[in-house]
Design a protein around this nucleic acid. Structure first.
Lengths: 112, 112
DNA sequence: CCTATATGCAACCTTATGGTTGCTTTTCAT
DNA sequence: ATGAAAAGCAACCATAAGGTTGCATATAGG
């Protein structure tokens, strides 16, 4: 039963949203959205926060699949991975669509 | 300077994502997506969790604007508010678009 | 009126989170 | 070869998060 297992294995988006649910992390995602991989030091540059804190945030993002690290010499470069972002976007679109459909049916019922 | 203040007041989505970043809460949102307001008791029915815990989650969702409570007699009915969901969706779309544009420019440069 | 239902409030517990500091290790460049 | 730069590791701290239990309050309905 492919359809059943496909339905059963719906990925759970909570971790992705949780990873995005922090100002600092959201800002990191925003900064990496230009497609340029950056080192931890580069991402710390604004100085608002310690390098270690940035590292932790990057690990969280990596854990949610939102970012990927690649070591290059003495620095490790973090790059955005758009796939889970897109998946989360699609998920939200689905919920919104469900809502709109429901309202549509309600209106049809009332009018009908 | 209307434009400047409009730009300055970009809503910050972290709280919305944070509210969505929990399985239970995400499930509540999913259940309310059919447009039917539900009481706390109704939303607790599966019994996986205490009514109090559900209440707390609903308050968090309400704090993020994702849900709205209206008291009706002895029960308070919670209804989904699609606006912040849609806004969050649009935000993610924006990040994805930025990423795609960046890749497009990079490709144009390489090919160029 | 009295009782069962629905919710609210408050205290409490455990673990996760966001952040720091200090020290070590790897690597680049002079 | 040596010093500075980049990152890793580990311990620690304070607070927030998710959850529970116990008790109080309001309302629906016989």
């Amino acid at each position: 039963m492919l359809r059943a297992s496909a339905r059963a294995r719906r990925p759970d988006f909570a971790p992705v949203f949780a990873a995005l649910g922090d100002r600092t992390r959201l800002s990191l995602v925003g900064r990496l959205a230009d497609g340029v991989p950056r080192s931890i030091a580069a991402l710390t540059e604004d100085g608002a926060i310690t390098r270690q804190a940035v590292t932790k945030h990057l690990r969280v993002l990596e854990g949610a699949g939102l970012v990927r690290a690649e070591r290059s010499g003495r620095e490790s470069l973090y790059a955005l991975r758009p796939e889970p972002l897109e998946a989360a976007r699609a998920y939200l679109a689905g919920v919104s669509r469900q809502w709109d459909d429901a309202l549509g049916r309600l209106k049809a019922f009332v009018d009908g």
